[in-house]
Each structure stands twice: as C-alpha cells, then as structure tokens.
C-alpha cells in the first residue's frame, strides 16, 4: 500500500464517520413513528405504539408489532422488501424498489423544524 492509498483510506473513513455523526444529530432519536412513502409522496404516518396491519395501495402490506415494522406481503418480483429485517429506530428504512414504496422510521423532536426534509421530488 502506497502513501496516497493510505490517505484515501483515511479520507473515506473520516467522511463515513462525519456522515454518521451528522445523521445522528439531524435525525432525532425520539418519538419514533412510521412514515410510509409511495412514489416520493407521503402516504401516511403511523404510531409504533399500537400493533396493526397497513395495506399500501393494494401492492404491499406492512405490519407494526411490538414497536417494530416489517413488510409482510408484496406483489413485487424480487420480494427483497419482505426479506428485510424489521426496523424500529429512527433513520431505518425498508424499501420496495419495484413498487416504489418506502417504510421509514422518523424521529420527532419536540421543537419544530428540527428534522431533515425527508422527501424530495
């Protein structure tokens, strides 16, 4: 490994650490709730407190159970979303790319306008 290789290695580690710290600060880790996004638009926001099943546009079904969210059914060809692990903490997402469905856990701090703009487009 040459000197420049090592510098590159270090630089990427620093960027990763900085990004990790930034996201930790930007995404509040309290009052977590489930936000469902379809085609880039917010489909609905749900509390993690109560267990329930949510049908999304007739293509996907997700379930809230004991404060964790998982995708239980999907009509997508790859079924990758169904095989994703359940999510429970702010910042985590389950994505169904073919159906363009995103389940994301968003934190909510008391003070308003503190969270990052979650959606774009």
């Amino acid at each position: 490994m040459k000197k420049k290789d090592f510098m590159l290695f270090l630089m990427i580690c620093i960027i990763a650490a900085a990004a990790f710290a930034a996201f930790r600060l930007l995404i509040p880790q309290e009052n977590e709730e489930l936000v469902i996004i379809v085609n880039g638009d917010i489909y609905g926001t749900y509390s993690l407190e109560e267990d329930c099943k949510i049908e999304i546009n007739g293509t996907n079904v997700c379930e809230i159970k004991n404060g964790a969210v998982s995708m239980t059914e999907a009509d997508c060809p790859d079924q990758l979303c169904v095989h994703q692990r359940e999510i429970a903490s702010a910042g985590d997402t389950i994505v169904c790319l073919p159906n363009r469905v995103v389940l994301q856990i968003s934190g909510n701090s008391e003070s308003e306008g503190n969270g990052i703009d979650a959606t774009a487009g």
Binding site: I15, A19, F23, I37, A118, T119, A120
Partner: peptide
Amino acid sequence: VVENFYLLYYLPVLL
C-alpha cells in the same frame, strides 16, 4: 427510484 433521499442514512455503512 423511490424519490427519497432519506436512504442516504445508509451512506456511512455503504462507504
């Protein structure tokens, strides 16, 4: 694809 840049949360892990 999903028009959601919240996914960048996974940037550090992927880096």
